[in-house]
């Protein structure tokens, strides 16, 4: 008898689903619950010409840009919120090294709804007069066939690979969301719905029985998941709900070291190229710090 497929694999293997030139989406929102362990592996594997698609981005985009992995980003925000500007993004955008396509925040989510429905576009009526519309030839104006009103067709996200980091999953690829949660966790749901290749990284791998005991919280059912990777602290330095907090000190350090190309190169050499895996990177962060990030959660 054949056994049910175990989708658990290593980060190195999972990152190979991303090929040069692909369109990818990272889950989470802004500076929260970003799949950073996966981002690191993309950098280690020196991916090129990727397009990052989403609603709000922070260190995920900034690190990929600084490492030369992205040629394009489609987003409504790249910044580090209270930790300041995303300096690699800023440098690359001002230097003409990356194409930035500006979408507004809600519309950027709409693109994933279109993808979920397998529709080529989402209908939006609120773009008239904006440069979001005027500077983006991919958004097509059309007349509403019902009312004659001016509408705009916003292209579906069209993502090749979606990557989300969750607090728990099983080896078959069932991934959990917390019953009480917030927007970054909702984003994880949104980007996986329409995508053919979904990679789940998880703080912990739990048994199928434990999943069954709270089936109402399964946000990515196994059939949607391509592979699942065990990645403790896999969103560091961004927080994961019910798992770890923001590493504020590291974020400030990152905001500082990404200030110039030279210092950022030293960061990459030490923390990413100089380590074989995310768990090796976590040794730099240190046990004490990691325990502190879990305290009171």
């Amino acid at each position: 008898m054949k056994e049910r497929k175990i989708k658990l694999c290593g980060m190195e293997e999972a990152a190979r689903y991303v090929e040069n030139g692909m369109r990818i989406a990272t889950g989470g929102f802004s500076v929260y619950q970003k799949p950073m362990a996966f981002v690191h592996e993309l950098i280690r594997q020196k991916k090129k010409n990727l397009t990052l698609v989403g609603s709000t981005h922070s260190i995920d985009a900034d690190m990929l840009i600084g490492a030369g992995c992205l040629s394009k980003i489609e987003t409504s925000y790249v910044g580090l919120e209270k930790f300041g500007l995303a300096k690699n993004f800023r440098r690359a955008y001002e230097g003409g090294e990356i194409e930035v396509v500006h979408y507004s925040e809600m519309m950027a989510w709409d693109r994933f709804l279109a993808e979920r429905e397998r529709m080529p576009f989402y209908t939006v009526d609120f773009l008239g007069g904006s440069d979001i519309l005027n500077k983006n030839p991919e958004i097509k104006p059309f007349r509403c066939p019902m009312t004659g009103r001016q509408m705009y067709a916003v292209p579906a996200a069209n993502v090749d690979v979606a990557i989300v980091h969750v607090h728990a999953a099983d080896q078959y690829g069932n991934a959990l969301i917390q019953g009480r949660h917030m927007m970054p966790q909702s984003m994880n749901a949104a980007i996986t719905r329409g995508c053919e290749t979904v990679i789940v990284t998880a703080e912990k791998i739990i048994s199928n029985e434990e999943i069954r005991a709270q089936a109402e919280n399964t946000i990515v059912p196994a059939f949607k998941t391509t592979c699942v990777v065990h990645a403790p602290f896999g969103s560091h330095p961004t927080p994961t709900l019910l798992a770890s907090r923001t590493d504020e000190g590291f974020f400030r350090y990152y905001a500082d070291i990404s200030g110039t190309k030279e210092t950022f190169q030293r960061f990459l050499d030490r923390y990413i190229y100089g380590t074989k895996s995310f768990s090796e990177y976590l040794q730099f962060i240190g046990k004490e710090k990691l325990e502190e990030l879990k305290r009171g959660i």
Partner: peptide, 13 residues
């Protein structure tokens, strides 16, 4: 751009 800022975020809406 001469200076890149953070993006449109939710202002358009």
């Amino acid at each position: 751009p001469k200076v890149a800022l953070v993006g449109s975020i939710f202002l358009t809406e």
